Measured scan of single mutants.
Amino acid sequence: IRCIGVSNRDFVEGMSGGTWVDVVLEHGGCVTVMAQDKPTVDIELVTTTVSNMAEVRSYCYEASISDMASDSRCPTQGEAYLDKQSDTQYVCKRTLVDRGWGNGCGLFGKGSLVTCAKFTCSKKMTGKSIQPENLEYRIMLSVHGSQHSGMIVNDTGYETDENRAKVEVTPNSPRAEATLGGFGSLGLDCEPRTGLDFSDLYYLTMNNKHWLVHKEWFHDIPLPWHAGADTGTPHWNNKEALVEFKDAHAKRQTVVVLGSQEGAVHTALAGALEAEMDGAKGKLFSGHLKCRLKMDKLRLKGVSYSLCTAAFTFTKVPAETLHGTVTVEVQYAGTDGPCKIPVQMAVDMQTLTPVGRLITANPVITESTENSKMMLELDPPFGDSYIVIGVGDKKITHHWHRSGSTIGKAFEATVRGAKRMAVLGDTAWDFGSVGGVFNSLGKGIHQIFGAAFKSLFGGMSWFSQILIGTLLVWLGLNTKNGSISLTCLALGGVMIFLSTAVSA
């Protein structure tokens, strides 16, 4: 259960009878995928790494000078000259100064003066180019299975845990398959586009800190620079940016070097996208990844198990997540596992009318040892309800109150669905055939309105939902006002479609 501690969480529900669903994975976010007769899966884009970055340009932001020398000439005696002028490691300046009897010249006039100092770069920052084909995306998957609280967001041991898996995709191999043991396998067909235009970005490294910066900004930095990788004795261009020549006297000129420019660069980098280094690879934390999940090989585990009949206890007080759902960790005293956990939410304890829904599909106890633990997640209705676990006299209950409203949740879900469709863009549509167009249209309606429909009408039977949709269509056909007619027709059509397409 990876997503319960992530604030940016998206719930995606598969269409009834569908074998695939489109998701948008982004750094700092987590996606929970639910479908009829399929286990619930949490998917998170953990890291995006980039390798084989080529150094484009380096800037010196802290330097020192040494070996200063000057040469001067009297008027009419030609130009002052130093051998160091031809050495690229030196920074030199030529000027004219007033000369006369007082400073060793027989004539009054302008004399030539040249001053040089050896330039040494102490600290530099480097910009590297990123090729999209060198990106690698690491995705962690977790099935809502027989897990306890100690396994949440624990990325170790996934090789031997059938509840978890790690997959890596690249532009050259965008397809992967996550093996989930008894739950089958989940196929991923990803489109490795981060949403960032790397043709316009460089990877900047300064003092063990890293950013993504725009090329134009990078090339306009007014500091000494050299092109390409460091060859040991780089040729620094624009050395004068960190060196200041003071007022010249008759035979000498003082040279000083400016202080470190790291603070000024940090100020200019305010708002830039931060990154990290992992050995020789860069780690990015921006952008998104679009994936199509193929769920035809994914299956529920323990459908044929019998119900657990022994007593359950709450190991922890049920807690609310950031998303309005409830996490419950229970301990089973029996030894008759594997068995299914009898769990439901009810409005009252007399009729036990089921409300809400299970995020953890078909929760089971897989071990036959005593005191096995299991964590599950529920989506309670707004208002008061009861969490009921167990059967008969051994069942345990917990009162729950959820604040908020169904309308607010439906609106929030619609906005999130619209954002998801905007990110998917043209990849969500198939114009290759008439059937493809209608299929894409259905998927689009489901992406945007599916979660809201589930919130508003999830407790009704599909037949009642179709009746309401048919009534809206009838009202649309018999209303003389054009805008009201079109609105009723659209709402009725969407409702009829979703009542037959969205899983219960």
Rank of each mutant, 00 (worst) to 15 (best):
I1Q: 05
C3I: 05
C3V: 02
V6A: 10
G14T: 04
G18W: 00
W20P: 01
W20Y: 07
D22E: 13
L25E: 08
L25V: 11
G29A: 13
D37G: 15
K38D: 08
K38G: 01
P39V: 04
T40L: 01
T40H: 04
T40Q: 06
D42M: 12
V46G: 11
T47M: 15
M53F: 07
M53Y: 05
M53T: 08
V56I: 15
V56D: 04
R57C: 04
S58Y: 04
C60R: 13
Y61S: 01
S70K: 05
D71H: 09
Q77K: 06
S86K: 04
D87K: 08
D87H: 06
Q89N: 11
Q89W: 12
Q89M: 11
V91S: 03
C92N: 09
V97I: 14
V97G: 03
D98E: 14
R99Y: 11
G100A: 08
W101R: 09
G104R: 04
G106R: 01
L107C: 06
F108D: 05
F108M: 08
G109F: 08
G111V: 00
S112M: 06
V114K: 03
V114W: 05
C116P: 06
C121Y: 09
K124P: 00
K124W: 06
T126Q: 11
K128I: 00
I130F: 12
P132S: 14
E133C: 09
E133P: 02
L135F: 13
E136G: 11
R138V: 15
L141W: 11
V143L: 14
H144L: 08
H144V: 07
H144N: 10
G145C: 04
S149D: 13
M151W: 05
I152R: 06
V153Q: 05
V153Y: 06
T156H: 03
G157S: 14
T160H: 15
D161T: 13
D161R: 12
E162Y: 02
E162W: 08
R164M: 14
R164D: 04
E168H: 02
P171L: 07
N172Q: 04
S173F: 05
P174D: 09
P174C: 10
P174Q: 04
R175H: 10
E177T: 04
G181R: 05
S185M: 05
S185K: 01
G187M: 14
L188A: 04
D189A: 08
E191Y: 06
P192R: 00
L196F: 15
L201M: 12
Y203E: 11
Y203K: 08
T205P: 00
N207Q: 02
N208Q: 14
N208M: 08
K209H: 05
W211D: 09
V213I: 12
W217N: 10
H219S: 05
H219W: 14
P222C: 10
P224W: 11
A229W: 05
T231D: 13
T231F: 04
G232T: 15
W236G: 02
N238Y: 09
K239H: 08
K239Q: 13
K239Y: 06
E240Y: 14
A248D: 03
H249Q: 07
K251H: 04
Q253M: 15
V257M: 11
L258K: 04
Q261F: 12
Q261W: 11
E262S: 06
G263V: 00
G263H: 11
A264L: 07
A264N: 11
L273G: 01
E274N: 06
A275Y: 01
E276P: 01
D278K: 13
A280C: 01
K281R: 15
G287S: 15
C291F: 03
M295S: 07
D296P: 01
L298N: 04
L300N: 04
K301A: 01
G302V: 06
V303S: 14
S306M: 05
A311F: 13
F314M: 05
T315C: 13
V317T: 04
H323A: 04
T327D: 04
T327A: 10
V328I: 15
E329T: 14
Y332D: 10
D336Y: 08
D336S: 13
P338T: 03
C339F: 07
V343A: 15
M345H: 09
Q350S: 02
V355I: 15
V355Q: 01
I359N: 05
I359H: 10
N362A: 01
V364Q: 03
I365P: 04
I365L: 12
E367G: 12
T369K: 02
T369H: 00
E370K: 12
K373R: 15
K373S: 00
M375Y: 14
M375V: 02
L378I: 15
F382K: 07
F382I: 11
G383A: 01
S385R: 12
I389G: 05
V391F: 14
G392W: 12
G392A: 15
D393S: 11
K394S: 13
K395D: 01
K395R: 15
T397I: 15
H398M: 08
H398C: 01
S403W: 13
S403L: 13
S405W: 03
G408N: 11
K409M: 11
E412A: 07
G417P: 04
A418I: 12
K419L: 01
G425A: 14
G425D: 09
T427K: 14
G435R: 14
F438Y: 01
N439S: 14
K443A: 10
G444H: 11
G444W: 12
I445G: 00
I448R: 04
G459N: 10
M460F: 12
S461H: 15
I468Y: 02
G469M: 14
T470A: 15
L471D: 11
V473Y: 04
G476C: 02
K480Q: 07
N481W: 12
G482V: 05
S485G: 13
T487C: 14
T487G: 14
L489W: 13
L489N: 04
L491E: 12
G492C: 03
G493Q: 09
V494N: 10
F497E: 12
T500W: 12
A501V: 15
A501D: 00
S503A: 05
